[in-house]
């Protein structure tokens, strides 16, 4: 058993070393493209900062809050029980899966944003 564990540890070490070697030897062109990709991603954050939005507000949050506001507003006018499911299906089409995590974990922000959106719509 000990021998088996030792062999597995050796395999882990060798495979990691081979991977590290491969990553260290990436061609300059690939490294350049990765650096460019990073700059593109960060450019969005920079633009947001210059517009005065704090970094902690995800880009789609205001739009999602507005959608949630519209849903709540419509829900008040629709027959009970009819629209809720269909509206969530619509929301699923416009929001990515990762964005949905935010609803669960940043509840306070979304509650505030929804209130704001509902207030704007009168």
């Amino acid at each position: 058993m000990e021998d088996m564990n030792e062999r597995m540890r050796e395999l882990e070490r060798r495979s990691r070393a081979a991977f590290d070697e491969g990553v260290a030897g990436l061609p300059v062109a690939t490294r350049t493209r990765l650096a460019r990709a990073r700059a593109t991603a960060l450019g969005e954050l920079r633009r947001r900062r210059l517009r005065g939005f704090p970094a902690w507000i995800p880009a789609g949050a205001v739009a999602a809050a507005a959608i949630a506001g519209v849903m709540l507003w419509q829900d008040e006018r629709a027959p009970p029980g009819e629209t809720a499911l269909a509206q969530f299906e619509d929301l699923d089409l416009v929001a990515g899966a990762e964005d949905f995590d935010m609803f669960a974990e940043d509840g306070d922000f979304y509650a505030w944003a929804t209130d704001e959106a509902a207030r704007d719509m009168g």
Binding site: A37, E44, W56, P58, A59, E98
Partner: peptide, 18 residues
């Protein structure tokens, strides 16, 4: 692979920077 990494970077920055 390059495209996938770029997309992942953009999504991380866009949604989880905070």
């Amino acid at each position: 692979a390059e495209d996938a990494v770029q997309d992942a970077m953009i999504r991380l920055v866009r949604n989880y920077a905070g």
